[in-house]
Amino acid sequence: MANIAQLEDMVTQVRRDIIRQVHKVNSGHPGGSLGCAEFFVALYQEVMDRKEGFDMNGEGEDLFFLSNGHISPVFYSVLARSGYFPVEELNTFRLLNSRLQGHPTTHEGLPGIRMASGSLGQGISVSIGAAATKKLNNDNHLVYTLCGDGELQEGQNWEAIMYAAANNVDNLIVSIDLNGQQIDGSTDAVLGMGSIRAKFEAFGWDVLDVKEGNNMTAVIDGLNAAKAKTGNGKPICVLLHTVMGNGIDFMMHTHAWHGKAPNDEQLAEGLSQNPETLGDY
């Protein structure tokens, strides 16, 4: 088990990376990215079994697919901080000719990305396919996915959720970023989904909650508990209760920062709340 304080230091640095990327090009999605910083750091630094380097097929290692691709700033930061590409490249986020496109893509050959995402609702299907191939290849590694909660309004998810349960896809852990916000407002106000837990359970998934999705120890414990449940005939759903904009006080508990960049003063304020730990890029 890694030192929690070290992982939390990385989270602080990742928050800096997120708002600096978005500020530089005055575009991107900081809110959801900040809410998932602990999840990404836990996954890449502690939970997943990863090989050195990157190859598309990812045999003999765990795989991760980001379904809600708009939170690319956190994904890019954690990939860079985990050694997939130089952290300096975060400087190119959303710029012309960059590998760090607005939404993640395989098209520019960025190491760490195995599937384009951005148009919502496709990640669980892709993950089920990758999980099926792992079984065919007798590869006992796991497939992890992250989806937004608002994203569950897309119908394709429920095709995939139905399939995974009916076909015992038990090498798959889908986490839902339950921050209760989407572009137009709260998920309840935009299109209430009722109990997401009850829905997954009714479809036949094994569901567990991480009530403190911005607490590193709680996230690691939750993901390890999910891991322990794999291989038992059911797909696993982790309901990750997070706070959008977490770690920057004026961005928290609102959908306002879903897809808005901070100005110079807001950037300075955000950075002052998250002192440099691993070194800025």
Binding site: N57, E59, R114, N137, Q156, Y163
Partner: peptide, 16 residues
């Protein structure tokens, strides 16, 4: 469930 089918097919290529 054709949408899921296409997504699954895309995912299955990962691993050959």
């Amino acid at each position: 469930a054709e949408a899921n089918m296409i997504g699954m097919a895309a995912g299955m290529t990962i691993g050959g």
